[in-house]
Structure formats: C-alpha cells, structure tokens
Write a protein that binds this DNA or RNA. Structure first.
Lengths: 231, 231
DNA sequence: ACCTGAACACCGTTCAAGT
DNA sequence: ACCTGAACACCGTTCAAGT
C-alpha cells in the first residue's frame, strides 16, 4: 500500500538497471545468447529501444552484469569448509553447476578478463590459496593457473553443452567424437582413453582437473622450485 | 611459362580456398578480428561479396581454417624431445608463442570445440601423455585438464594482450589491476602476490601453470587415486 | 563453373522529439 | 528525467544475372 507502483515483473512500472539485467538473464536462459538483441530485450520490457542506454552503457556491460549476478550467487551459496582445499573444490563445483544451469556464463567469462565476475573469481581463489598456505610468487602462478583452467573448462563445457545431446544420443555422439580422434592418428590414442571419453562424467572430470591442479600446487610447494628459472 | 595465370597475391588470378584463408589471416593479423568482414575481405581480394561462398561455407569456417593453419604450423615447428614431458612443454610454449603473434587465435580456439585446430591439439596432447606413461582413465582426465588450461590461458592472454600496454605503461596498468584486486578484499590478497602480479612475465607464468599440471599428473600417477570416487 | 553486386533480413547505437 | 522509435551505419548471406 505504501508504494503505488506495481511490482512489475517486466511490462509495467519504472525501468531500472536491475529489471534490465533480470530480463537479460531470463532471455539468456530461455533462448540463448543469440536471442539477446536490444530489440528483443526492449520488446520484452515493453519499452523503446534507446531506453536501456539510460541504465547501461551497452550490450557488453549488460552481459557482464548478467554474468556477475550468477557468479555472485555462487559465492553466496558455496559451502565454506575448515579445510581451504575443500572450500576451493566446493567453489569450483559451484561454478561448474552454475554453468550447467546457465551455459552462456561460460562463454561470457572467457570474453573479457576485466569484468566483475572474473575479478570476483580471482579474489576468491586468491583468498583460498592463501588459506592453504600458498603465498607470494607461487600464489600468483597457482592462482593464474587455476583461473585459466576454470575459464577454459567453463568455455569448453558451455560450448559443448548445447551441441552434445543429453539423452541416449549422447553416447552415440561421443563415440563419433572418439572415432574422429582415433582416425586422426590411430596409433596414438589408446582404446582405453577413447572408451573413457565416451563414458566420462563431465562434472567428475572437471573435478579431477581441479584435483590435478591442487596436487601440482602442493607438490610444488613441498619440493620448492624445480627447473623453472628463479625470480 | 607453363601456367599462364599470374601467381596473384590477392588481386589477380583465380580465387581459391587457400587464397581466401591467407587473406583472412593477413587481415586478422593487421587489423584484428573486428576488421574481418565479408565486405573488407572481398574488397581485399578484389572480388564480389558472394564469391567466397563458393569455397567456404561461411565466416565461421573461415575463422576455423585460419586458426588451424596457425596451429598446424606450431606442430610442424615444435621441437620434439626424447623426454615426452619436455616435448609437452615445448608444444605448450609453441602454442603460447603463436598466440603472441596472432592473438585472435586464442579467442577463436575457445569458441568452438569441434574445430580442426582443437582436434589437433587434443591428439597432440594425447600422444605425448601416452608417451609419458599416462593411460586410460587417468589420461582422459589429464588430457582434458591440460586442454582446458591451454584454452583458458589462450583466451585470457589473447583478450589481455590488446588491452595491456606493452611499453612502460604496462607496469602502471598492472599496478592499477593489482590495486583493484586488493581494494575488493584488502585482507585477502597478500602484498607479495600483488607485487608478483605487477612483475610477472606472461610466458613464464604460462609455463609455470603447465608445470603445476605436470607435477599434479605425476603426483596422481604415483599415489594412485585419492579421494575422488572410484570408477 | 565462376563470379558479381544488389537485395534481404538483420544488427547495436544515437538522437531529435515527445512526456 | 525518462522514454520513444525512426534513422544511421553497419553486418552475413543469398541469389538472379552476367561471363
């Protein structure tokens, strides 16, 4: 009763940055990235085409804001653990699961390194590595490596999720993919690896990659610098 | 004297897929990805707009073909080493160096997982991991992890290389970036890590990431499975 | 068969005009 | 101040028409 404006999911009420970003996420989720045009968006918001430019500098900022909203939610829900290593795994899985729900996030994360969502992940990883006792030069390298892995996996997964059928055709598709790999150089890909490709679980494989990283970081921290140049 | 056609770098002679891809690479290198429009390309080739569609299905295939040409060259020049581990490092560095010369490659690699250049890297990594004695399930996980790292690093680096000044301004830019990271959560990023960010060498950091991976793979192979679910 | 370039069906962004 | 929607300056792709 206090606020005379309707709470307006989309059509009515005043426009705001928040409304615009929410509508963008809806459109992204329901129809994919190619469907997010200024025309479609403003139609969805029942407003003029130029209106959104009062709240947002352009399409790039819009996509970055949508991505940050998803990543922020991951940080809010990701379970913290007394073991920093486990927290890092939780964070990585949280990002992975968010990607499954919003595949466009994976593509957007890789597009622009200086965007809020990427900053957020940087600092999150940095804090956890510090808690793990990794500091200084090693922390910088480890953080960058983990970041690169995460973003690479995100982009790959996001690009695949739309193209790999999820039902019973998934196996057939992956068998084709494995066959293509073996055909290219049949001596080189062993049959066991090809079979693993067909039967692997994406989420488990993603986590296996995180664990390889963590093992490498811990091995490096334990043994000191190996052959890479000092300083 | 045998062939009456001029050898035509661009304007004269018959059109061919090879010519078109070469012109695309030239345009990509000289003016960046945004400059590669069908209009600019066909002007460069002094032909009609529709002509290229006789040789190539569209812009996506064109960019994929350009990318594959660069990656193929990396494989041809990358030094093979009796030590498979060292060969893998050489390959990774070869890809990194190609990216420095052709930043658009990094972005293109992340865009589409089912493209020739990506297949090529998959099989290359697979072969070297096998030579390292990593096989079966572990090889599939290790290969995917390394692939994700490589593609993530490629995309990040490609996106940064245009935006970070390379001269004396580089330091100032990175200091700003470091400040932004610390500002976000000043307790959390240690000063040493921030300093490392400013002074790090991209190529060295990239290689450090590869080494973290290799250490993790070797640690995993030595200790067997850790806590990740069996099968 | 190969090539041309107008035409088509779109884009993101700007901006004078309205309220 | 906020919003509208025509106009602007582009895109990639198609296709009838030419050679």
């Amino acid at each position: 009763m206090i606020d005379p404006k309707p709470q307006g999911t989309q059509r009515s009420g005043a426009l705001s940055r928040e409304h615009i970003v929410s509508a963008t996420i809806e459109l992204l989720d329901s129809s994919g990235e190619s469907a997010v045009t200024v025309r479609a968006l403003t139609a969805h918001l029942s407003t003029g085409r130029g209106a959104i430019y009062h709240y947002v500098s352009g399409k790039e900022e819009l996509l970055a804001a949508a991505t940050d909203q998803i990543i922020r939610a991951v940080f809010e829900t990701s379970a913290d653990d007394p073991d920093a290593r486990q927290s890092l795994r939780n964070l990585a899985l949280g990002i992975f699961d968010a990607l499954t729900e919003h595949p466009w996030v994976g593509i957007q994360l890789g597009r622009e390194p200086r965007q809020p969502a990427v900053f957020r992940i940087w600092t999150g990883i940095g804090a956890l590595l510090q808690r793990m006792g990794v500091t200084g030069h090693a922390s910088s390298n480890a953080g960058a490596a983990l970041m690169n892995y995460l973003l690479g996996a995100a982009a790959q997964y996001a690009a695949t999720v739309h193209k790999v059928p999820s039902g019973g055709d998934r196996k057939a598709y992956l068998e084709l993919f494995a066959a293509e790999l073996t055909r290219l150089d049949s001596e080189v890909i062993d049959q066991e690896a090809a079979a693993a490709l067909v039967e692997h679980d994406d989420r488990e494989q993603f986590l296996a990659g995180v664990d390889i990283f963590l093992a490498g970081i811990e091995a490096g921290a334990a043994s000191g610098r190996s052959e890479t140049g000092e300083q």
